[in-house]
Nucleic acid binder design. Sequence first.
DNA 1: CATGAATGAGGCTTCATTCAT
DNA 2: AATGAATGAAGCCTCATTCAT
Lengths: 232, 232, 232, 232
Amino acid sequence: MAYRTSQKIQEMKDAKKQHIEESAAKVFAEKGYYQTKVADILERADISTGSFYFYFNNKEELFESLYDEMIQTYLSVLQDAIDTMKDNADSIAESITKAVSLSLQTFQTKKELARIMLISSVGLSAEFEKKRIADHQKISLVFEEIFRGLLQKEVIRVPDAKVAAVLFAGSIYSVITHWLQENTAIDLVEYSDPLIAYNLQALGIQCNDSDLTAKYIPIEIKNANHFHKESI
Amino acid sequence: MAYRTSQKIQEMKDAKKQHIEESAAKVFAEKGYYQTKVADILERADISTGSFYFYFNNKEELFESLYDEMIQTYLSVLQDAIDTMKDNADSIAESITKAVSLSLQTFQTKKELARIMLISSVGLSAEFEKKRIADHQKISLVFEEIFRGLLQKEVIRVPDAKVAAVLFAGSIYSVITHWLQENTAIDLVEYSDPLIAYNLQALGIQCNDSDLTAKYIPIEIKNANHFHKESI
Amino acid sequence: MAYRTSQKIQEMKDAKKQHIEESAAKVFAEKGYYQTKVADILERADISTGSFYFYFNNKEELFESLYDEMIQTYLSVLQDAIDTMKDNADSIAESITKAVSLSLQTFQTKKELARIMLISSVGLSAEFEKKRIADHQKISLVFEEIFRGLLQKEVIRVPDAKVAAVLFAGSIYSVITHWLQENTAIDLVEYSDPLIAYNLQALGIQCNDSDLTAKYIPIEIKNANHFHKESI
Amino acid sequence: MAYRTSQKIQEMKDAKKQHIEESAAKVFAEKGYYQTKVADILERADISTGSFYFYFNNKEELFESLYDEMIQTYLSVLQDAIDTMKDNADSIAESITKAVSLSLQTFQTKKELARIMLISSVGLSAEFEKKRIADHQKISLVFEEIFRGLLQKEVIRVPDAKVAAVLFAGSIYSVITHWLQENTAIDLVEYSDPLIAYNLQALGIQCNDSDLTAKYIPIEIKNANHFHKESI
DNA sequence: CATGAATGAGGCTTCATTCAT
DNA sequence: AATGAATGAAGCCTCATTCAT
């Protein structure tokens, strides 16, 4: 009985904590870290100061945990894509397509994730920058290792796996950032095809349409891209 | 006599103002906008509060003017590159190479420019973001127009000029950001070749070594890149 | 229970707010608006900076609300006097006596009201002056309307109701200001009789002692004035 | 020769000093003491900071000297009026009329004098208030002594010479203050007649038209007031 | 657990005054 | 004498955090 109760309570606590986190994420994404006052979060989450400090030690920690969670989310998305790559190593293009596609789909559904990871967390302080840099290097490393492997197999042609990884990751960020900054209702995934095309070509991968109409790209935008059709 | 004097004083004022700007740029680049206290700038520039507010209305305006100056600097660098492109339109690869090269050289010599433009000015507030977004769209547009022209002449192959521009600009930013975040003594221009290679290939431009050993790339790093050597 | 609690808290908040107001009123009255630093109010009220700004938006607003309150207090005191006038319109002298008497009694018990209304709020800024002028014109208008009515009934003899109102109000202010500036322990109400006498005579109202020993003048000072005794 | 030169210089210095004083008086009158920044005075007088501090020790002293000058001006105006009173002591009404008239004429021509004396100098600080109070008591005393003399001669009927003086002075201030606060183009001297009438009547002085059409009232407004005509 | 009143360190800015030229 | 750049003390206010209820 007591167990049941405390379990329920625990669930409510967890729910409330998550509610605060979600509210905070929205505000951080909208206003940036410093312009987000604790009071703004309280208002958005409709809670009291006391509650806030019951669930979180301070504003900074909350932000960091949100940020960490987002980096983790993205890293695991990437890991998923990679794991699939290893499974069917025959089609590199498809694998890369998947990685990009999944990335965009993730950020599309979690716009706050995108904003906080790519905008709100930038340039906060020398200390936080160290953390952020390390995290982005971690992400970059994921691509770097893949590229290194592909380089050895000579399926991609790039002068430097590391730089390629930086550029590949950067290209994804660019598109997301661009999408975040448009105030149109365009879907992020609509950028999938040109983004993938750009990168595949950049990596020197020969690919045909069948790769690009991969199952990871939502059907309705498949036909948007007729790139390479005229290539011999 | 009076003229002589006031001219000298004006020069000293200008010098002092610039001195403050430079000091401020360093601190902003190091600590970010919000972590930079006016007191930090005073200390760095070795001036009094009064002097600061004699030359600038407030911290925000100083930052904005620094930021604006940097955007302008970069835009004019790009414009230079474009003007040359128009002159010798035969070699597109060379032109693009120049644009990238000049960009990197600029940021290399003005590291604070890079940090403030790409890091310290990010996510400050909803209002500043509007400005920043507009500026980056302006930069992107420069590339977009070039790409649009090249698309018509069928010298590049990309599905969408706009996205290509975003990706092209993004690739430059990625490299610079990466370089800023490394604490090694590596030159930014060392990234020129792989960056150019990645983009040329992405744009579907056939190029050979001679393009890459363009005169805009400082000699000492020319040989660093052996990319494409094995290409037929 | 919760109702009980929040009600208690609300009462305490109100009490604290009023405590701050009273403290501030004292300091404003003593030192003037500009010489009163927020820190002075904090010290006087024995509260923290945070508390101050929890209850008030800023120093200016607090002052204005104090000032407004005082003007309202005085206006309602005047209104009371007027209402009585209308009831027993037979004795004009008595009514006027009451108006003056009540005014003085009010200011006597609320010395800060007097100081802030007549001294601390004077000449603060062009903007505040507009407000202050409007308020004083409102007060003056109260008298003006009465005088206009009395003029029609030919019970007073003055060339101009408006100027008479200004002078009547001014006479009250003069006495209060004089009283504020003396550092003797003289009661303000002791000035009632000569003040009333001066004005009644100025207004051309024939009056005898019985009017002046009106019930509105505290008994103990009734005998202080032997004016008019020798008048036939 | 040297004498001649230094004399000229002295004259120029005096002129400049006076120019600053006049400029400052205007600003103080417009904005109040605290809202008047030294920079405002500099701009109005079109001088440099250095010049300002060459001629005056500080802002406070400048204000005080302006204020003192104005009090002195008014006191000497009053003294003039009194001296005449003593000469032709037969007509008290005329003398009082002259005192009031001269006061108003003075303030009319020197609006800044009025504003600074009656508004800008009010409630500045506890210390300055002492000075201001003393000055006003000095002015009041002038009237008080006259009234005391008149009381003895039984030409006026007031319960208390001191209070009468306060009220008399106050009535003048009221009218001036009222005039300052109107933004119409009405002349201050237009208030002369009703003001004089109010006070004469208040003092219990029997007077007829001939007194009021005294030579001290500018001709054009003499006929404005027909007060007391119907009195027997 | 929740509430929100209370705290106070610390930031930005103003502005009277000084001083080198 | 004149200039105006330089100074820095001091004021107002914000806002993350604490704590009593």
